[in-house]
Write a protein that binds this DNA or RNA. Structure first.
Lengths: 230, 230
DNA sequence: ACATCCAAAATTGGATGCAATTAATAGTAC
DNA sequence: GTACTATTAATTGCATCCAATTTTGGATGT
């Protein structure tokens, strides 16, 4: 596979985007070690900008820094995913309820457009896109709330949940049916209680899928040494 | 006072800590422009590490990057502080309630120790310390929850609220009386409903203080000059 | 006196080079 | 054949250097 055409991007933001996409598509799976040099080569920039990318994505939690300085793709445990979803259950049902309460003032065009794309990815079976899109649904809602701190929060947490999904769930089971559409319908019809409740159940389902699944994520040789030695 | 002794620190984490403290003490007030060079000089490191510090604190929201690339200390509007406190009201009452429900399994020694320090700073009138400490109280609670994502969330939001406090409130009014102690008492006695309710009221009071105050923040764009002369 | 435009200084963004730390490998002894 | 060690390769972290952009200051003309 030729990564040159696909990966090269100049600005720091583009590089982060592409790298995240590569991670969701499992071209750089959880636990994989990333060296600054190979990233600098892959994106055709100097190590300096790669260091900034790594610093940012480390703070986002998508990458982790080992005690010796090596950076790896994060491989969150099931327990950590639970912690994340616990936070999301604190805020997202309330977001959904609030949106439903002010549904008259909001423009839902981006949402319905998104649901269309999601459905398309689901039927066409492009898994990497589907994982990314199902995460982006929640981002759209956070954005609609008009609270940029909520958006940032959901952005960070959602990325790690996506990682958990690709690690622990078996392909299509990941994103249950059309729960997103039901939530959107409740919001757009102004039914705040239903919207909040559906959101709780949705997040519960995501957690169930991850916790109940027996799928074991495979770590690479290099990272295995780390885990056993430390 | 000689800032050399005070500011110089080698590791990136130390530098961030010192810079944050300097901001809370208004030596680098909201709106002040920070150039990489003067920071590099002040901390006696190269611009490279300063750039990492800036990148991280920018992501935390404590610093902001203007369209032209200049970095300034964030000067959040009252509206933004409201947004932040809205997020905190979504999670912190629930945290307090959860802690109260499992109060038997928790060790509250750090909390009581913290309350002591807070009281000390309040009576001794060291304002910079007080602002920092009142923020750290909430961090202690988040830490007790054992959920590192909650901790990160509160960490980011709390820093910006501290900025809002120093910008918009008149000194001592900032951190109402002994609300922290009341919250801690409820938690340590296992009264979850009271703990959650007190937390809501506490956050409401903080917001009221900021919104009702008529204090106008003055943007310093050339403060660094007389700061060096001090 | 005021506005405009051009030159010079400053500042950010990026690349390269160097030292220190860490991982890998080969070689040797048992 | 295995374990241990020493040498070598590789990677991170930091500092300096170069280019590109922005800001400042002043000169000029109206």
């Amino acid at each position: 596979m030729n990564e040159d055409q696909n990966l090269r991007g100049k600005t720091e933001r583009e590089i982060r985007q592409k790298l995240l996409q590569a991670i969701f598509e499992l071209r750089m799976p959880p636990g994989a070690r990333l060296t600054e040099s190979v990233l600098a080569d892959a994106f055709d920039v100097s190590r300096t900008v790669i260091r900034l990318v790594i610093a940012r994505m480390t703070q986002d939690g998508v990458l982790v820094k080992r005690p010796n300085g090596a950076t790896c793709v994060a491989s969150p445990t099931r327990s950590e995913i639970s912690q994340i979803l616990r936070v999301r259950r604190m805020v997202e049902p309330e977001i959904a309820g609030d949106l439903a309460r002010s549904y008259k003032k909001l423009s839902f065009a981006p949402i319905v457009e998104h649901l269309r794309k999601e459905e398309l990815a689901r039927t066409s079976g492009s898994y990497g896109d589907l994982v990314r899109l199902t995460g982006e649904f929640h981002l759209h809602l956070a954005e609609l709330s008009g609270n940029r701190f909520l958006f940032n929060l959901i952005y960070q947490l959602q990325a790690l949940v996506c990682l958990g999904v690709v690690m622990y769930t078996n392909t299509e089971i990941a994103c249950p049916e059309d729960e997103h559409r039901q939530i959107a319908d409740s919001i757009m019809s102004g039914d705040d209680e239903s919207a909040a409740e559906l959101m709780v159940h949705h997040l519960d389902h995501v957690e169930e899928n991850i916790l109940s699944s027996s799928k074991q994520h495979i770590h690479f040789n290099e990272t295995l040494k780390w885990l056993s030695g430390e």
